[in-house]
Design a protein around this nucleic acid. Sequence first.
DNA 1: TTGTAAGCGTTATCAC
DNA 2: GTGATAACGCTTACAA
Lengths: 345, 345
Amino acid sequence: MSASLKDIARTAQVSEATASLALNGRKGVNEKTRQKVLDTAKELGYVSNGTARSLARRKSGLIGVMVPNISNLFYSNLVRHIERSLRDMGYKMILVTTESNINYEKEMIRHFVSFRVEGAIIYPSIKENEKPEYINLLMQNGIPMVFIGNYYPGIDAPHVMSDLYKGVREAVDYLYITGSRHFYYLGGCKSIVSNQLKLDAIRDYLTERGLEFPDDHYLLLEHTRYENAFIRMDALLSSGKEVDAVIAADAFSALAVYNVFQKHGIKVPDKASIISFDNLLYPDVCVTRLSCIEQDLGSIVNCTMQNLQAMIQDGSKGVSHLSPTKLVLRDTTKQYLAAEKGYAG
Amino acid sequence: MSASLKDIARTAQVSEATASLALNGRKGVNEKTRQKVLDTAKELGYVSNGTARSLARRKSGLIGVMVPNISNLFYSNLVRHIERSLRDMGYKMILVTTESNINYEKEMIRHFVSFRVEGAIIYPSIKENEKPEYINLLMQNGIPMVFIGNYYPGIDAPHVMSDLYKGVREAVDYLYITGSRHFYYLGGCKSIVSNQLKLDAIRDYLTERGLEFPDDHYLLLEHTRYENAFIRMDALLSSGKEVDAVIAADAFSALAVYNVFQKHGIKVPDKASIISFDNLLYPDVCVTRLSCIEQDLGSIVNCTMQNLQAMIQDGSKGVSHLSPTKLVLRDTTKQYLAAEKGYAG
DNA sequence: TTGTAAGCGTTATCAC
DNA sequence: GTGATAACGCTTACAA
């Protein structure tokens, strides 16, 4: 069906070996023969068989990238950054998604191993993942991996992510200074490290100020999305609870919160403030211009890549890294002190 | 480094052949030997080498999927649908993006061929693509392909996409009936079929009604996104042009248009209507609840998959299909006649 | 039921 | 510079 090296060799009247050398631009082959080989290759529409090459070279030129899904702007932007780096580095990407399903995640790890990726970048998202040891399959097969955005405790691999604890503390500090006292957090399961870090940051800060952060101020969102957030928040306000600060794990739930405040006649930011994560939606298309904790995808990806490259080349262990976040203040937080603290608008 | 079939064979004291048969669940192998093989495989942490398997079987189990990018909700949703189907069908997906760069697109086609994908699903996005023949590389290598969402004229492959012409006509009809006379279209380059279809639909309808649709009523957006749309629209209104109907190629530019109308004190939908494509953003998080032409991703993907499967199995040619769109009326169009025409809110 | 051996399409190590 | 030839790790006739 498709032309093989053998076909080229036969047509160009050289051995397969020379044909291979010529096609791979190796030195030590007569310029004329090279030209002949290249010409017949083009003529026959030859495309080298990557499968066979991977096998022979014991190198696939592939990097596995695993994210929960790509219909989420955060992940898709992350992937875009990764893809660009990978292109620059001369790798091809194998992108897979897990839908936060542990069986898919396991399957995809095997997929990576099966195709002998040279490295793996993994965004972990399985909650209550008691035994994430299946991840070790990579290392057992000599495949370097780095966690991005999050990590599974107990797995001996470096992680590169935002300094969420610090970022949330900074946000809580700003909210506290501007008068908020009744804090709520809307987000995912705390068995996931990133959520735990955010909760800890809130609780620690408030505790230091002699305030409480009761368990029921943590609204667990199964899918941290609009409807769910709206319903939970609406119920909360209808029950008469006082709430003047909400930190939401994503923009859609934050906007849901805003709409609920509107519905209940609570002025934002006068009576209540909202801070969300990420800064990926055009602020001007939204019902309100959200204040948010922006993550530096570029730096996260850069650091991940450096790690991975070092691990692949030197066989080094790699080193975890926390990337600073940036508090972006817009219309869902009070303006008080904004200038002095140096927060960007 | 990683255990191979040979290792298993040696440890389990059988030949490689039997080990292979056992691992692949083939019949004709003693239950005891099978168990022994399976056990040692698990023990050694064996993962079969997909590269070698592809080579030996002359089948990769891979389907190539190519989209312009994944940071766009339309594409990422499309991919999510595709991925699910592929999983059900037992294929693995190789997802690549082109950033609408013709060199990347060519490179990725070769990538597909190189790894001998069993089929390819391609969302074409290169404008002014004079010579899209490089796409034929797939067919030349016996790889069935189907265009999704759009197509390159002149390439002999089926396409599955929305019936954009009909969808836009329906929208224009609604706008006309509700009083609009000065139509504008904001979107991508008309060298791309999908844009051409939309423009034709508008022009044809208006011509039939004895109205004009001058060339400068088509605002070409390089990247059909917020800022660009805002600037163009703002300039237009500032120049004093009358505009009472805008069809925008995506939600972000539609929302930009809305903001521009607001800025100029033009009431939407009283004085001007806006209809965008896609229905992927929660309407309630936006500055206004957009009316839109919704595409049926599910049906597009289903049809694509059926085509591809038939082409792979029977070697059939595949057949193009246009999937109906749905006009969703919300707050950027007048309510007149909405009920009678049976349009959903 | 099991083993032998010939591929699959490359690359890499040698001689020549 | 070039050409045999042996890997690479698996599948699959065909024998045994």
